[in-house]
Simulated scan of single mutants.
Amino acid sequence: MTASPARSSRLLIGSAVLLAVAGIVLLVVPHGQESPAPETSSTVTADQSAAASLPSEDKSAAAASVSASPAVPTPSVLESALPPHGEGVRGDMAVQQSLEAAWPSDLPDADERQLLTAGRALLRADATGVGRTKWPDVFPDTDQAVAPAFATVGFRIQAAIARRDGSPDKAVVHLVWAGTDRGGTYTDLRITDLFFTLTPKKGEPTWTPQPRI
């Protein structure tokens, strides 16, 4: 039996409507499933932002820590830990302890003893003029009459340590001392650094002082 034109028309329209509805459903369902994606994306972005902010905070904290605890003490830091001026011999032990606490030992005992002996003698020669002939490379003008900058009487080395200066063959002797200058002014807690290089020789190596600039 053949369907009437009206019924065929209704079937076509109904089929078209069903297809349209099915298409809308297919379009809407994936979109609904993907809708949480922005939340995930925003969460990841927030986490990434928080993670990106951490290094700068860590760097700031590290910088604050370094600023609070310098790796290499400076003279101003050392001076703040020393006893007050005019303390006299009674304060020398505190000075020595401050030096040793600021710069931990890093030299063999034999090298440190040799450097301390040379450093003390060199400083005394430089300040008072006594014993300069022993150091012709450091004091080339020993034949000339040179008035010492400090009097022999009252000169005192309050503390001294010897440490490496960046490499195994370089060292520095840190000295804290007191003395009276040509004008008669007595001052303690003076700080002087003397530099040495290791000279290879047969037997015991020798630490040679460097000319002062």
Rank of each mutant, 00 (worst) to 15 (best):
A3W: 09
A6F: 05
S8P: 00
S9H: 10
L11V: 08
L11M: 10
L12V: 13
A16M: 13
L18K: 06
A20L: 15
A22N: 14
I24M: 14
V25G: 15
H31D: 14
Q33W: 12
E34H: 12
T40E: 15
S41W: 12
S42H: 12
A46V: 00
D47E: 14
Q48A: 12
A50T: 00
L54V: 09
S56E: 13
E57D: 10
D58A: 13
S60K: 11
S65V: 10
S65I: 12
S65G: 13
V66Q: 15
S67L: 14
S67E: 13
A68E: 11
P73N: 00
P75G: 04
P75W: 01
E79I: 05
A81Q: 08
H85G: 15
E87K: 10
R90S: 14
D92H: 12
M93N: 14
A94Q: 10
S98H: 07
L99N: 08
W103P: 03
P104F: 00
L107E: 02
P108K: 08
P108D: 12
D109H: 10
D109E: 14
D111P: 05
L115E: 02
L116K: 12
L122C: 01
L123H: 05
L123M: 06
R124W: 04
A125Y: 03
A127W: 02
T128V: 07
G131T: 07
P136H: 03
P136G: 02
P136N: 02
D141E: 10
D143R: 09
V146C: 00
F155Y: 03
R156Y: 08
Q158G: 01
A159H: 06
A159Q: 07
A160N: 05
A160W: 02
D165V: 03
P168Q: 02
D169F: 05
H174G: 09
H174A: 13
L175A: 05
V176H: 03
T180E: 13
T180Q: 12
Y186S: 06
T187H: 04
R190Y: 08
L194A: 08
L194K: 11
L194M: 13
F196V: 12
K201A: 15
P205K: 11
T208Y: 08
P211G: 04
I213C: 02
